[in-house]
């Protein structure tokens, strides 16, 4: 949606970032068959009572997938949602399994990159956020 309130977000810069790795990102998003076979390879998925929002596929679809779909035109709230996914639900242990070999950790790291560049990142000093990152 182009009527998004994008105040405080440098959408051109996000677009530029996305373009820099567009081919691989596109291919990765396209190759994901939404099969959920990656779920159990995430130890957090197992430790959090099989909560689907911890599935590697869920995390990459709801971070880089969203940014790609909206072509970088997102509001700050969306970036903050993405932050909660890529930092709050992933520790980048880089061990997820994908039947098609999609490099999910790279995509998550990429999303972190974009968020950080927009000044959206976890507040490590906040009590209770200690598990992030």
């Amino acid at each position: 949606m182009s009527n998004e309130n994008t105040a405080g977000v440098d959408t051109d810069r996000i677009k530029k970032r996305l373009d820099s790795r567009k081919a691989k990102m596109k291919l990765s998003l396209a190759a994901c068959a939404h099969c959920t076979l990656c779920a159990e390879s995430c130890f957090l998925f197992n430790a959090r009572d099989n909560d689907p929002t911890y599935m590697p596929s869920y995390k990459f679809i709801n971070s880089i997938g969203v940014l790609y779909k909206k072509k970088g035109v997102v509001d700050r709230a969306t970036l903050e949602d993405i932050r909660d996914v890529v930092w709050g639900r992933c520790v980048l242990c880089t061990r997820c399994y994908c039947p098609f070999g999609i490099d999910i950790p790279e995509m998550i790291a990429f999303a972190r990159n974009i968020c950080r560049e927009q000044g959206v990142f976890p507040d490590y000093e906040e009590k209770g956020s200690i598990h992030a990152g």
Partner: peptide, 16 residues
């Protein structure tokens, strides 16, 4: 008990 930090990254002590 595994650890999702460094030992997971270096394939020594992660979930797998």
């Amino acid at each position: 008990v595994g650890c999702g930090g460094c030992v997971s990254v270096c394939l020594a002590g992660g979930q797998r």
